[in-house]
Design a protein around this nucleic acid. Structure first.
Lengths: 105, 105
DNA sequence: TTGACATGTAGGTAAATGCCTACGTATGTT
DNA sequence: AACATACGTAGGCATTTACCTACATGTCAA
Protein backbone atom coordinates (compact mmCIF):
# COMPACT_ATOMS: atom_id res chain seq x y z
CA UNK A 1 0.00 0.00 0.00
CA UNK A 2 1.88 3.06 -1.11
CA UNK A 3 0.67 5.97 0.95
CA UNK A 4 -0.12 8.92 -1.24
CA UNK A 5 2.36 11.57 -0.26
CA UNK A 6 0.34 14.34 -1.88
CA UNK A 7 -2.54 13.73 0.49
CA UNK A 8 -0.43 14.03 3.62
CA UNK A 9 1.36 17.03 2.19
CA UNK A 10 -1.95 18.72 1.40
CA UNK A 11 -3.15 18.17 4.95
CA UNK A 12 0.05 19.69 6.28
CA UNK A 13 -1.30 23.17 5.73
CA UNK A 14 -3.92 24.54 8.15
CA UNK A 15 -5.66 26.65 5.51
CA UNK A 16 -6.17 23.59 3.35
CA UNK A 17 -7.56 21.60 6.26
CA UNK A 18 -9.97 24.45 6.90
CA UNK A 19 -11.08 24.39 3.28
CA UNK A 20 -11.98 20.73 3.70
CA UNK A 21 -13.87 21.63 6.85
CA UNK A 22 -15.87 24.22 4.95
CA UNK A 23 -16.67 21.72 2.21
CA UNK A 24 -18.03 19.43 4.90
CA UNK A 25 -21.00 21.80 4.97
CA UNK A 26 -21.54 21.24 1.29
CA UNK A 27 -20.19 22.35 -2.09
CA UNK A 28 -19.02 25.93 -2.29
CA UNK A 29 -17.88 28.28 -5.03
CA UNK A 30 -14.25 29.34 -4.93
CA UNK A 31 -15.22 32.86 -3.96
CA UNK A 32 -17.41 31.72 -1.10
CA UNK A 33 -14.53 29.73 0.27
CA UNK A 34 -12.12 32.60 -0.13
CA UNK A 35 -14.41 34.96 1.80
CA UNK A 36 -13.74 32.97 4.93
CA UNK A 37 -10.02 33.50 4.80
CA UNK A 38 -7.81 36.43 5.60
CA UNK A 39 -5.91 35.88 2.43
CA UNK A 40 -6.06 37.09 -1.18
CA UNK A 41 -8.00 34.98 -3.62
CA UNK A 42 -5.10 33.88 -5.79
CA UNK A 43 -3.49 32.36 -2.71
CA UNK A 44 -6.64 30.44 -1.96
CA UNK A 45 -6.80 29.41 -5.57
CA UNK A 46 -3.37 27.88 -5.16
CA UNK A 47 -4.48 25.93 -2.10
CA UNK A 48 -7.46 24.66 -4.05
CA UNK A 49 -5.12 23.49 -6.77
CA UNK A 50 -3.07 21.51 -4.25
CA UNK A 51 -6.22 19.93 -2.84
CA UNK A 52 -7.42 19.12 -6.33
CA UNK A 53 -4.13 17.47 -7.27
CA UNK A 54 -4.29 15.43 -4.09
CA UNK A 55 -7.73 14.28 -5.15
CA UNK A 56 -9.33 15.77 -2.05
CA UNK A 57 -11.68 18.14 -3.86
CA UNK A 58 -13.52 18.11 -7.13
CA UNK A 59 -14.06 21.19 -9.28
CA UNK A 60 -17.21 21.70 -11.27
CA UNK A 61 -17.75 24.69 -13.52
CA UNK A 62 -21.15 26.29 -13.16
CA UNK A 63 -21.40 29.36 -15.27
CA UNK A 64 -18.73 31.75 -14.16
CA UNK A 65 -18.41 30.02 -10.83
CA UNK A 66 -16.25 27.05 -9.99
CA UNK A 67 -17.93 24.96 -7.39
CA UNK A 68 -15.72 22.81 -5.24
CA UNK A 69 -16.91 19.75 -3.40
CA UNK A 70 -15.32 17.33 -1.02
CA UNK A 71 -13.72 14.16 -2.32
CA UNK A 72 -13.10 12.29 0.90
CA UNK A 73 -11.90 8.98 -0.48
CA UNK A 74 -8.17 9.77 -0.21
CA UNK A 75 -8.68 10.48 3.46
CA UNK A 76 -9.35 6.82 3.92
CA UNK A 77 -5.71 6.23 3.12
CA UNK A 78 -4.81 8.45 6.01
CA UNK A 79 -7.20 6.56 8.24
CA UNK A 80 -5.67 3.29 7.11
CA UNK A 81 -2.17 4.57 7.72
CA UNK A 82 -3.23 5.59 11.20
CA UNK A 83 -4.74 2.29 12.24
CA UNK A 84 -1.57 0.46 13.34
CA UNK A 85 -0.94 3.31 15.76
CA UNK A 86 -4.40 3.22 17.21
CA UNK A 87 -3.58 0.50 19.70
CA UNK A 88 -0.85 2.71 21.08
CA UNK A 89 -3.18 5.40 22.29
CA UNK A 90 -6.24 3.31 23.15
CA UNK A 91 -6.67 1.79 26.56
CA UNK A 92 -3.75 1.54 28.92
CA UNK A 93 -1.38 0.35 26.27
CA UNK A 94 0.97 3.20 26.91
CA UNK A 95 2.10 1.46 30.06
CA UNK A 96 2.14 -1.93 28.45
CA UNK A 97 4.30 -0.52 25.75
CA UNK A 98 6.99 0.35 28.25
CA UNK A 99 7.12 -3.29 29.29
CA UNK A 100 7.35 -4.40 25.70
CA UNK A 101 10.09 -1.88 25.18
CA UNK A 102 12.26 -3.50 27.82
CA UNK A 103 11.60 -6.96 26.44
CA UNK A 104 12.75 -5.76 23.08
CA UNK A 105 16.22 -4.90 24.35
CA UNK B 1 -10.17 21.42 20.39
CA UNK B 2 -7.59 23.10 18.22
CA UNK B 3 -5.84 20.73 15.89
CA UNK B 4 -2.13 20.70 16.49
CA UNK B 5 -0.57 22.00 13.33
CA UNK B 6 2.85 20.61 14.22
CA UNK B 7 1.51 17.07 14.12
CA UNK B 8 0.05 17.41 10.63
CA UNK B 9 3.15 19.19 9.44
CA UNK B 10 5.35 16.44 10.83
CA UNK B 11 3.32 13.79 9.02
CA UNK B 12 3.66 15.73 5.78
CA UNK B 13 7.11 14.29 5.23
CA UNK B 14 7.44 10.68 4.07
CA UNK B 15 10.73 10.11 5.88
CA UNK B 16 9.14 11.12 9.15
CA UNK B 17 6.19 8.83 8.58
CA UNK B 18 8.65 6.03 7.95
CA UNK B 19 10.43 6.79 11.21
CA UNK B 20 7.13 6.34 13.02
CA UNK B 21 6.64 3.07 11.20
CA UNK B 22 10.03 1.86 12.37
CA UNK B 23 9.23 2.83 15.94
CA UNK B 24 6.10 0.71 15.68
CA UNK B 25 8.48 -2.25 15.95
CA UNK B 26 9.82 -0.89 19.20
CA UNK B 27 12.24 1.72 20.51
CA UNK B 28 15.32 2.31 18.46
CA UNK B 29 18.53 4.28 18.87
CA UNK B 30 18.99 7.24 16.56
CA UNK B 31 21.75 5.42 14.71
CA UNK B 32 19.65 2.34 14.16
CA UNK B 33 16.93 4.46 12.65
CA UNK B 34 19.36 6.33 10.45
CA UNK B 35 20.77 3.07 9.05
CA UNK B 36 17.46 2.44 7.32
CA UNK B 37 17.55 5.66 5.35
CA UNK B 38 19.48 6.73 2.32
CA UNK B 39 20.29 9.98 4.01
CA UNK B 40 23.08 11.38 6.20
CA UNK B 41 22.64 11.15 9.92
CA UNK B 42 22.32 14.88 10.65
CA UNK B 43 19.38 15.05 8.27
CA UNK B 44 17.69 12.23 10.13
CA UNK B 45 18.50 13.97 13.38
CA UNK B 46 16.59 16.97 12.12
CA UNK B 47 13.57 14.84 11.29
CA UNK B 48 13.73 13.36 14.78
CA UNK B 49 13.72 16.87 16.20
CA UNK B 50 10.57 17.73 14.25
CA UNK B 51 8.89 14.56 15.47
CA UNK B 52 9.97 15.29 19.03
CA UNK B 53 8.61 18.84 18.91
CA UNK B 54 5.33 17.48 17.56
CA UNK B 55 5.23 15.16 20.56
CA UNK B 56 5.23 12.10 18.34
CA UNK B 57 8.41 10.56 19.70
CA UNK B 58 10.14 10.52 23.03
CA UNK B 59 13.90 10.63 23.48
CA UNK B 60 15.65 8.78 26.25
CA UNK B 61 19.37 8.96 26.80
CA UNK B 62 20.97 5.63 27.45
CA UNK B 63 24.68 6.01 27.75
CA UNK B 64 25.94 7.46 24.54
CA UNK B 65 22.84 6.36 22.70
CA UNK B 66 19.61 8.23 22.35
CA UNK B 67 16.74 5.82 22.21
CA UNK B 68 13.59 7.02 20.52
CA UNK B 69 10.18 5.56 21.15
CA UNK B 70 6.77 6.17 19.72
CA UNK B 71 4.44 8.62 21.41
CA UNK B 72 1.22 7.94 19.57
CA UNK B 73 -1.16 10.11 21.58
CA UNK B 74 -0.99 13.11 19.20
CA UNK B 75 -2.06 10.83 16.39
CA UNK B 76 -5.41 10.57 18.08
CA UNK B 77 -5.92 14.21 17.22
CA UNK B 78 -5.46 13.29 13.59
CA UNK B 79 -7.92 10.46 13.94
CA UNK B 80 -10.40 12.80 15.61
CA UNK B 81 -9.94 15.36 12.89
CA UNK B 82 -10.59 12.67 10.32
CA UNK B 83 -13.81 11.33 11.82
CA UNK B 84 -16.27 13.88 10.38
CA UNK B 85 -15.05 12.88 6.93
CA UNK B 86 -15.40 9.20 7.55
CA UNK B 87 -19.06 8.88 6.58
CA UNK B 88 -18.24 10.64 3.34
CA UNK B 89 -16.29 7.66 2.17
CA UNK B 90 -18.49 5.04 3.88
CA UNK B 91 -22.11 6.21 4.03
CA UNK B 92 -24.78 7.41 1.64
CA UNK B 93 -22.90 10.58 0.99
CA UNK B 94 -20.30 8.57 -0.86
CA UNK B 95 -19.48 9.87 -4.30
CA UNK B 96 -18.98 7.95 -7.49
CA UNK B 97 -15.36 7.18 -6.83
CA UNK B 98 -16.28 5.61 -3.51
CA UNK B 99 -18.83 3.40 -5.18
CA UNK B 100 -16.30 2.26 -7.73
CA UNK B 101 -13.82 1.52 -4.97
CA UNK B 102 -16.35 -0.63 -3.15
CA UNK B 103 -17.11 -2.58 -6.29
CA UNK B 104 -13.45 -3.44 -6.50
CA UNK B 105 -13.55 -5.15 -3.12
C1' DT C 1 -20.90 44.46 -27.74
C1' DT C 2 -19.45 46.50 -23.66
C1' DG C 3 -18.74 46.10 -19.07
C1' DA C 4 -18.85 43.79 -14.61
C1' DC C 5 -17.97 39.61 -12.29
C1' DA C 6 -15.63 35.06 -10.99
C1' DT C 7 -11.57 32.90 -10.96
C1' DG C 8 -7.22 30.97 -12.62
C1' DT C 9 -2.26 32.11 -14.17
C1' DA C 10 2.24 34.59 -14.26
C1' DG C 11 5.79 36.10 -11.96
C1' DG C 12 8.06 38.02 -7.93
C1' DT C 13 9.73 37.50 -3.01
C1' DA C 14 10.61 36.17 1.80
C1' DA C 15 10.66 32.37 4.56
C1' DA C 16 10.67 27.51 5.38
C1' DT C 17 12.29 22.93 4.15
C1' DG C 18 15.49 19.30 3.46
C1' DC C 19 19.65 18.04 2.37
C1' DC C 20 24.70 18.34 2.94
C1' DT C 21 29.68 18.85 5.26
C1' DA C 22 32.10 20.19 9.17
C1' DC C 23 32.32 20.52 14.08
C1' DG C 24 30.97 20.21 19.14
C1' DT C 25 29.70 17.45 23.12
C1' DA C 26 28.96 13.61 25.84
C1' DT C 27 29.98 8.97 26.99
C1' DG C 28 32.38 4.72 26.92
C1' DT C 29 36.95 2.05 26.28
C1' DT C 30 41.82 1.11 26.72
C1' DA D 1 44.75 10.53 29.60
C1' DA D 2 43.87 9.52 24.90
C1' DC D 3 40.96 7.82 21.60
C1' DA D 4 36.64 6.00 19.60
C1' DT D 5 31.62 6.13 19.38
C1' DA D 6 26.97 8.16 19.14
C1' DC D 7 24.60 11.94 18.10
C1' DG D 8 23.23 16.74 18.03
C1' DT D 9 24.30 21.62 16.23
C1' DA D 10 26.05 25.19 13.00
C1' DG D 11 25.98 26.95 8.87
C1' DG D 12 25.60 26.71 3.81
C1' DC D 13 22.75 25.94 -0.24
C1' DA D 14 19.16 24.64 -3.61
C1' DT D 15 14.37 23.92 -3.78
C1' DT D 16 9.74 24.49 -2.31
C1' DT D 17 6.13 27.00 -0.11
C1' DA D 18 2.93 30.56 0.64
C1' DC D 19 1.94 34.71 0.09
C1' DC D 20 1.45 38.95 -2.85
C1' DT D 21 0.23 42.19 -7.15
C1' DA D 22 -0.85 42.36 -11.80
C1' DC D 23 -3.00 40.24 -15.68
C1' DA D 24 -5.60 36.83 -18.72
C1' DT D 25 -9.74 34.19 -19.56
C1' DG D 26 -14.32 33.04 -19.57
C1' DT D 27 -19.19 34.13 -18.46
C1' DC D 28 -23.31 36.73 -17.64
C1' DA D 29 -26.02 41.10 -18.01
C1' DA D 30 -27.41 45.49 -20.01
Amino acid sequence: MPVNDDVFAALGNPARREVLGILLEGPRAAGEIAERFDMRRPSLSEHLRVLREAGLVREERQGRNRVYSLEAAPLQEVSDWLSPYEHFWRGKLANLRDLLDEEDL
